[in-house]
Design a protein around this nucleic acid. Structure first.
Lengths: 136, 136
DNA sequence: CTAATTCCTAGTAAAGCAATAGGAATTATA
DNA sequence: TATAATTCCTATTGCTTTACTAGGAATTAG
């Protein structure tokens, strides 16, 4: 049940954007990559997910870069991770009822509980909180 | 963050063993495979994990099969899943402090919270509970 | 015009997953 | 003792995903 680097690196990029947030000042990828020690080429692909999910917007050309589309306190970690990884549920059967056993499945009960507990965490934590708490 | 079939099928096998639990009566793999509609060959490999993790014991030869090593009410789901999948944490860095950033990492904070929430669920649910609740 | 930047597509090496196959070892029982 | 039922062990394989790298096109500020 490990998260991919996609989710981990992508979230780090978002944290970096939050830490350098200013509504009219885009951050170029090269800076993020250097500060976070991540491959610029790979990060670029991750930014595509975040852009298509409307969590960041991009400005092309010189002096361009990326900006958060909303303030860090109104972006949840859940939004970010789902944008990068798709569903975060432990099994497919908690998202869609695919299985004929679904009605009376002991294990599905458990998968739902795990799913809920993860959701509770990620949907109730904002990007800002994450940045603030690590400052202490 | 999907669980592998290893964890899902393996847990189903354990549930099956719990539902047919009798301390001196082993359940042959062929029965589990048929009831759960799982490949017997693959299940066999999963049972190896569970046996080496001392959650089941096996009896070879005719009339042989597998038995839970303890009563279903004293086996937690956490034990079972870890036995099948290894660590269930979302990142390596919550198990071992591998990363030089660890001391001041906003994202690690989050991974720990997710990890705790999963642990709370799986370490406080027993095999018996799971079986009982689905009977209703 | 130039340099800095994002955007897009394609390719690729490595790893892990989900099996399948085949046979050896063990044991109850007829 | 022979047989059938069973677990145990090892190897192989096809498939998918991951985590990149490479190269160039498009855009824009100065």
């Amino acid at each position: 049940m490990r998260l991919s680097t996609r989710a981990r690196y992508g979230l780090r990029a978002m944290v970096d954007l939050a830490q350098h947030y200013s509504p009219d000042d885009p951050v170029p990828l090269s800076q993020i990559a250097e500060r976070q020690k991540l491959s610029e080429g790979y990060l670029e692909q991750l930014m595509t997910f975040l852009r298509k999910g409307r969590l960041v917007r991009s400005l092309r050309g010189a002096q361009g870069g990326y900006i958060l589309v909303r303030k860090p306190d109104s972006i949840t970690i859940g939004e970010i991770l789902r944008c990068l990884e798709g569903s975060l549920s432990p099994t497919e059967c908690v998202d869609e009822e695919i299985c004929e056993r679904a009605g009376n499945c002991p294990t599905r009960l458990l998968w739902k509980r795990i799913n809920d507990s993860i959701k509770t965490v990620i949907d109730n934590t904002t990007l800002e909180e994450l940045c603030k708490q690590s400052e202490n």
